[in-house]
Amino acid sequence: MTAVAADVLTLLGLLLLTVGVYGVVRLPDAYTQLHSASKAGFLGVAALLAAASVSGEGAIIARAFLIVALLAVTTPVASHAVARAAYRRGERMRTPNAVNETKDRDVQPTRSP
């Protein structure tokens, strides 16, 4: 039973990790890649860690919990740091009709007051 659970969690983790990596390959700029990379990647790694700790002993469970908690706090900070660096250095969004409410105020009629 636990072996089946571990298999299912492993495959789920692989699927999520693959989606994350494929998103980085396919999406055009750093901003959109961030969505795919850190988030799908984070859940994928969490699933793999859960698979490792399903039938595991206390030491593995404690460390897996610690790593997941740590990643849950650090991945948003890391993504924010990358996004802010890219934004401040003026990296362009490469999608043809990307929304940008921070520049060209007159060109953006949907901007809120």
């Binding site: 990790l17 980085v24 961030l34 850190s38 990647g41 984070f42 790694v45 793999l48 250095r89 990296e91």
Partner: peptide, 21 residues
């Protein structure tokens, strides 16, 4: 861009953590 490179480096550590798990 350099932003994409930093991001790929971050993803690399995530995948390595998955491998170690």
């Amino acid at each position: 861009t350099i932003g994409q490179r930093i991001l790929a480096l971050d993803l690399l550590t995530l995948v390595l953590i998955g491998l170690l798990a």
